[in-house]
Simulated assay, not measured.
Amino acid sequence: MFESNVFNRTSAGEQEISAAAYNITIGLCLFWGFFVNWLMVVNIDPASLTSIPTWMFFIGYFASCFFGMYLFNSSDKPIVSFIGYNFVVVPFGLIINMVVSVYDETLVMEAIRITGGVTLVMMILGSMYPKFFQKISGALTVALLAVIVIELVQIFVFGIHHNWIDWAVAVIFCGYIGYDWGRANQIPKTYDNAVDSAAALYMDIINLFLRILRILGRR
Rank of each mutant, 00 (worst) to 15 (best):
M1Y: 09
E3M: 07
S4C: 06
N5V: 15
V6W: 04
V6R: 11
F7I: 02
S11F: 15
G13Q: 08
E14Y: 03
E16T: 15
I24E: 07
T25D: 11
T25S: 15
C29A: 14
L30Y: 10
F31I: 10
W32F: 14
F34T: 11
F34Q: 08
V36A: 14
W38G: 09
W38P: 04
L39T: 01
M40T: 05
I44Q: 11
I44C: 13
D45M: 06
P46T: 01
A47T: 13
A47Q: 14
L49A: 05
L49I: 09
S51M: 10
I52L: 12
I52R: 08
T54Q: 15
T54S: 14
M56I: 08
I59Q: 06
G60N: 00
Y61E: 05
F62P: 01
F62V: 02
C65S: 02
F66M: 05
G68N: 04
M69Q: 12
Y70K: 10
Y70T: 13
F72V: 03
F72L: 08
S74W: 08
S74R: 15
S74V: 11
S74Y: 11
S75Y: 07
K77R: 12
P78I: 04
I79L: 05
S81M: 07
S81G: 15
F82H: 06
F82P: 10
G84P: 13
V90I: 12
P91K: 00
P91D: 00
G93P: 06
I96C: 08
N97G: 07
M98P: 01
M98W: 06
V99L: 12
V99P: 10
S101N: 14
S101K: 13
Y103W: 04
D104E: 14
D104A: 12
A111I: 08
I112N: 07
R113I: 14
T115R: 02
T115A: 04
G116H: 03
G117H: 04
T119W: 05
L120A: 15
L125N: 01
Y129W: 13
P130I: 00
P130M: 00
F132H: 08
F132E: 07
F133I: 01
F133A: 06
S137W: 03
A139T: 07
L140S: 03
T141R: 10
V142E: 02
A146I: 10
V147W: 00
V149C: 10
V149M: 12
E151T: 11
E151Y: 00
G159A: 07
I160F: 03
N163M: 06
N163A: 11
W164V: 14
W164K: 04
I165W: 03
V171M: 03
C174M: 14
G175V: 02
G175Q: 11
I177L: 05
G178V: 00
Y179V: 00
D180E: 06
W181D: 04
G182E: 06
G182H: 09
R183V: 08
R183K: 14
A184H: 05
Q186H: 14
I187Q: 10
T190P: 09
D192R: 04
A194Y: 07
V195C: 02
S197G: 06
S197T: 02
L201T: 03
D204M: 07
I206Y: 11
I206F: 07
F209T: 01
L210V: 13
I212D: 12
R214E: 13
R214W: 13
I215D: 05
G217W: 12
G217C: 10
R218K: 09
